[in-house]
Amino acid sequence: MDWDKALARAREVAEFCAEAGLERYRVSQEDLEIEVRRSSRRVADDAAAPAAARPASGSGLATSNGSVTHEGPAETLLKAEFVGIVRFTHPVVVEGVHLPEGRELAYVESLGIRNPIRVVAPSRVTAVLVSDGQPVEYAQPLFAVEPTT
């Protein structure tokens, strides 16, 4: 499949994802695998974003039978509790790596104090949402992880 077609397909998937109110959706076709994830990092633009871009209550995420097929229900966002500079812990994690329980991914340096960011259970990193040395604000998502038990 050529690049333009792949991009068009990805756009379709993204639109479907938005309409259905899904946070994340993966589809594979022939030699192509597309995963679409809505970034919750764009918090600064949230207020100005059109309402349609957000899940309407009662759709997708909150299906009545509780089975949400396409959303990673166990995915959690590790957020900053403090305003400061995020510093990655070595070895630096990347998307896809598996982490043992308690592993520190990074710390937020705030007024000279290290505030560690850890996983509470064995997990896989599904997204790295910041870069090393970046200033971060309160509640800013730093990493997305899902448990691997």
Binding site: F82, V83, G84, S110, L111, P135, E137, Y138, A139, Q140
Partner: peptide, 20 residues
């Protein structure tokens, strides 16, 4: 910069986050 949740004690009175 967001410095805390709604209640003022944890945001607009949050001295460490404001200084940071």
């Amino acid at each position: 910069y967001c410095v805390g949740p709604g209640p003022a004690a944890r945001s607009y009175l949050n001295i460490p986050n404001i200084i940071s």
